[in-house]
């Protein structure tokens, strides 16, 4: 076990913590995206990072998914350090990014298959599990269709199905219902709660939607300007702030709701992609 040192967290770390983040800081030049963030995620729970755009949610996910190194602080996923044991850690999680990472010129089945090969899933298991997951996510009938013919909700479902192919311990979902219509959002929430129950996979999701955090997550960490402002279940947060809605609690904790931020190159490309999207 890693030595914890001085900690100001209320809960003590459990042996069943699947994710442990301690005093992590991430700076990009002069910008501090993540400013001394600490939290734990327990095995089997649905944990949400709730905060506005630019709060540091995606940066935190990128650090946990080995895509970025923290400037300082310690991270642990299933007991391993993502910066030191990249390959081992990668086997243990699945991730659905904010921007699609499917290959739209390939079929749903081919996307699943490539994922299986990249994650060294043996052929027989690969085939059986792909079949089971595509059926569970109601995509079996479209398995031979090119992904570019899929709706936004279907693509999202396929990405989640794909992320589960190698039976990970944790599933990261970065803004899972961003850009989806209300029905698809509802479907997604039911799906996420279900697979948490059925597969037993721990879910770490980021969102700026209050209703999403409220309905889906077991525990929520409110993050703003790179800092965690409060952690707890939806009920606990409402109680702490003396409000009756998560929105009210959020307002009390952070002082503001939506704020402007400068467009990044990614935002510009996102705009271009929206023009060319079906």
């Amino acid at each position: 076990m890693t030595a914890r040192g001085r900690s100001t967290r209320l809960a003590s770390a459990r042996a069943t913590d699947v994710i442990r983040v301690q005093h992590v800081v991430k700076t990009f030049g002069k910008v501090t995206a993540v400013n001394d963030v600490s939290f734990d995620v327990r095995a089997g729970e649905i944990f949400a990072f709730l905060g506005p755009n630019g709060a540091g949610k995606t940066t935190t996910i990128k650090m946990l998914t080995t895509l970025l190194h923290p400037t300082s602080g310690a991270l642990e996923l299933d007991g391993l350090d993502p910066t030191k044991h990249q390959t081992e850690v990668r086997r243990r999680f699945g991730v659905v990014f904010q921007d699609p990472s499917l290959d739209s010129d390939l079929t749903a089945w081919e996307n699943m298959d490539i994922h299986g090969v990249l994650y060294h899933v043996p052929r027989q298991i690969r085939r059986e599990r792909s079949q089971a997951l595509l059926a569970m996510f109601e995509l079996w009938d479209r398995r031979g269709d090119l992904v570019k013919t899929f709706s936004g909700g279907m693509k999202r479902r396929l990405e989640i199905a794909r992320g589960l192919l190698h039976t990970p311990k944790v599933l990261f979902l970065d803004e899972p219902t961003l850009g989806l219509d209300p029905q698809s959002r509802n479907q997604m929430w039911t799906l996420v709660r279900n697979l948490n129950k059925v597969e037993g996979v721990t879910v770490f999701l980021t969102t700026h939607y209050m209703d999403e955090a409220d309905r889906v997550a077991d525990r929520i960490a409110v993050i703003d300007h790179g800092r965690i402002v409060a952690t707890g279940s939806s009920a606990e947060l409402k109680q702490q702030t003396g409000t009756d809605s998560l929105e009210g609690a959020f307002l009390k904790l952070t002082g503001t709701t939506i704020r402007d931020e400068s467009a990044t190159a990614a935002d510009q490309m996102r705009q271009v992609s929206r023009v060319w999207r079906r």
Binding site: R91, F97, S101, L102, D103, A266, M269
Partner: peptide
């Protein structure tokens, strides 16, 4: 890199 398949390969244990 931003919108597609490359990210999937970057995060894989390969």
């Amino acid at each position: 890199r931003q919108f597609g398949f490359l990210k999937e390969t970057l995060v894989a244990p390969v």
